[in-house]
């Protein structure tokens, strides 16, 4: 599903961000990406949704290789994955429902289904009563739920979350995390970067830890026989 093979990433001005990182996320899996700020978590996520490309090694997502993907295919790939951020990235002048509909409209979704789909998603994230609220009228937790609903519009196979609870209080954090668990339980893989160790400890999901651009711990590898894991096809 998502496979990193000896990936190194060097930014022109930022130096080496990732150094020989390899891992594989299976279909429907939930994995945490942890590590201190600047360790390379966001870089890994950017490589997954192909905003950045590896300097060395290969990234393979849903069968496409970062090395050979054409610019036009990136848009198609992104429709198959959902991305949420710490800062929500909602359009301020559009309502919750419009923000979600926007993602459908700009991907040429059939217009007839948009309203139904938006209201179903709002219900799924528990915001059916806030459809017409602007982002500034919503709490942080609610805004992140809108962002998650938007990320789910095209039924992605994986939800990529970059510190989704970074700006939220404990209660909102628990709510958003539960939502991500529910989404995962319904079959969508989740790759979540976080440095909220409390969340990580409380659940028994896979943990991939990055430090200074290197993969220093992978709970999946620690548990299983490393050799067997590496031979598993993507």
């Amino acid at each position: 599903m998502i496979r990193f093979m000896h990936v190194s990433k060097e930014y022109a001005r930022g130096g080496l961000a990732l150094d020989d990182v390899s891992f594989h996320i299976a279909k429907g899996e939930f994995a945490f990406l942890t590590g201190p700020s600047g360790a390379g978590k966001s870089t890994i996520l950017k490589l997954v949704y192909m905003e950045e490309f590896p300097t060395e090694g290969d990234v393979r997502v849903a069968g496409v290789h970062a090395g050979t993907i054409r610019r036009g295919e990136i848009a198609q790939l992104r429709r198959k994955l959902g991305v949420v951020f710490q800062d929500f990235r909602l359009l301020e002048e559009r309502t919750a429902a419009q923000n979600i509909a926007f993602a459908l409209e700009v991907t040429d979704a059939p217009r007839a289904n948009i309203a139904t789909k938006v209201s179903r998603l709002l219900t799924q994230v528990g915001l059916s009563s806030k459809a017409n609220a602007l982002p500034r009228e919503l709490s942080g937790g609610e805004q992140q739920r809108v962002a998650i609903a938007r990320a789910l519009v095209n039924d992605p196979f994986v939800l990529i979350a970059d510190e989704p609870t970074g700006n939220l209080d404990d209660r909102a954090t628990r709510g958003v995390f539960q939502l991500l668990r529910d989404i995962n339980a319904a079959g969508t893989a989740v790759l979540m970067a976080t440095h909220n160790l409390e969340l990580v400890r409380r659940s028994d999901y896979r943990v991939i830890e990055i430090n200074r651009g290197q993969l220093v711990y992978d709970s999946a590898e620690a548990a299983a026989d490393a050799a067997v894991d590496r031979s598993t096809p993507a």
């Binding site: 949704y49 610019r71 036009g72 848009a75 198609q76 790939l77 992104r78 429709r79 991305v83 990235r89 359009l91 926007f102 993602a103 700009v106 991907t107 040429d108 938007r150 990320a151 519009v153 095209n154």
Partner: peptide, 17 residues
């Protein structure tokens, strides 16, 4: 710019943007 980056994120094609 914000709008453009969100459009790209959710998979809008360059032509569409």
């Amino acid at each position: 710019g914000r709008e453009i980056s969100i459009m790209r994120l959710v998979g809008a094609t360059d032509g569409f943007i």
